[in-house]
């Protein structure tokens, strides 16, 4: 019994979260958020894995396969990640236009 893939998922999530908290650049923050979300991909795929299971694609023969549901969920997860990053980058462009900076601290100073 191995818990290593779960540990990897947790590590990606936490290291991404640290990046988000300590970020001094909104673009960097968006990348950190995708690292965080990568942790959820790893977790979903790890939950669905079955020892000796192959991809759930049955052609031409039937075989032992991993869970297709979590793979479909991972697909949704990736789409959500893309849309969130696009929106954050658009907001970062707007913030840069308004305040001339992508550093959250400086932007806060600017508005306050």
């Amino acid at each position: 019994m191995s818990y290593l893939p779960y540990a990897l998922a947790a590590w990606l999530f936490v290291v991404g979260l640290y990046g988000v908290v300590s970020s001094r650049n909104l673009i960097h923050l968006a990348v950190c958020l995708t690292v965080m979300q990568s942790g959820t991909y790893v977790l979903l795929l790890a939950i669905g894995y079955k020892n000796g299971g192959a991809a759930p694609i049955f052609r031409p023969t039937r075989h032992k396969a991993v869970d297709p549901v979590v793979q479909a969920l991972t697909l949704t997860d990736i789409v959500v990640s893309v849309t969130v990053v696009a929106l954050i980058l658009a907001l970062a462009l707007g913030a840069h236009k308004e305040s001339g900076s992508v550093n959250p601290d400086e932007i806060a100073d600017f508005s306050g």
Partner: peptide
């Protein structure tokens, strides 16, 4: 969680 590779949910 069950150990990696020890999948036992019915839906998949």
């Amino acid at each position: 969680l069950p150990g990696f590779g020890h999948y036992h949910w019915p839906y998949g």
